[in-house]
Every structure is written in C-alpha cells, then in structure tokens.
C-alpha cells in the first residue's frame, strides 16, 4: 500500500533538488515548479524551463524523479511554456543565496524595465557591494547569466539576467 503523501512532505523533498548550474538554488527558489498535484499513488509535477534551450531541464527532471522515488508513488512530470518563466519568480531567499554565492541577483519587476534598448540597470557587485560595475558581455557562463566587472574590487562576476 502506498500512503498519500502530504503536500509538506513532497515540498520538503523538492527543497532538496538543486539547480545543477547554480547549486545553491533549489528548484523552488528558482520558480520553475509551477504545480504539484498529489493523488493517491501519483504525484504530478508541472515544470517550466527558464530558457528555451536550458540544458539543465533534463537533469532537473531526473533529479525530481529520483528524489520522489522514495515516496513509492508514480511520478509524472509535465513541461509547460505558458506563462513564460520570469526572473521575478526567483524567491527572496533564492536571491540572498545567489548573492552569497557570488552571483548578482536579477533586478525585480521586469515589466517596469526597458529590457530592449533602455539604459542598463545599475548592478551591485556581489563581492563588495560597489555600484561601480560595468557590463562585459550580455551572455555569461550559462544562458541565464551576463558577465560584469567591478571597478572597485576588480573582480569579475556573473549577473543573473532579468527577463
């Protein structure tokens, strides 16, 4: 017999699944889990990718399956594209963890920002908190990050793009 898992139990398990590319963030921090549906013997997870080609999605899916296997329930994972993921969905806790890890978290509220040709936002250095920073490249080590340089502490750092 398979017991019906409580939502809190499932959530505690999902909180142990980390983003393979930013391993301090859980999938919950990242905001890619859009739904958890619990039925007797079945857990259905709805996921959304951060970027169309995000290569971490397959790993995240496998990791979720692996950790939920301990419940003995069948696991179904659906991928949805709408509504499109936004960096606004990254939790406040996730933003703090990111900063501690050396990645500048994204600006909040993409709607009010001119993503296209507007002025570049001021990005605070995650190492020394200086705002004397400059963009090196719009694209960084993963699809979701850009590269910056701090003029005060002279360290390069990643900025999690605001989309």
């Amino acid at each position: 017999m398979v017991a019906i898992q409580t939502r809190a139990e499932i959530q505690a398990l999902l909180d142990q699944v980390f983003d393979p590319e930013i391993p301090v963030l859980t999938v919950t921090d990242l905001g890619v889990i859009r739904g958890v549906d619990i039925q007797p013997g079945l857990i259905r997870i709805t996921l959304t990718p951060t970027y169309s080609g995000c290569p971490a999605m397959n790993t995240i899916e496998q990791d979720i399956r692996a950790i939920l296997a301990s419940t003995g329930c069948a696991v179904e994972i659906d991928t949805v594209y709408a509504p499109a993921w936004s960096s606004d969905w990254i939790s406040d806790a996730g933003r703090e963890k990111m900063r501690d890890y050396g990645i500048a978290p994204p600006e909040k509220d993409t709607h009010s920002k001119k993503v296209l040709m507007g002025a570049d936002p001021t990005i605070e250095c995650p190492h020394c908190q200086s705002t004397q920073t400059k963009l090196i490249s719009e694209f960084g080590s993963t699809a979701c990050k850009a590269m910056y340089h701090c003029d005060d502490c002279l360290q390069p750092f990643d900025y999690f793009k605001c989309i």
């Binding site: 970027y51 080609g53 699809a143």
Partner: peptide, 8 residues
C-alpha cells in the same frame, strides 16, 4: 548561448 535558444 543564442544558438542554444534556437535549438531549444
């Protein structure tokens, strides 16, 4: 990175 968006 741009390539990856297109492959996705």
């Amino acid at each position: 990175n741009i390539s990856l968006d297109y492959i996705g």
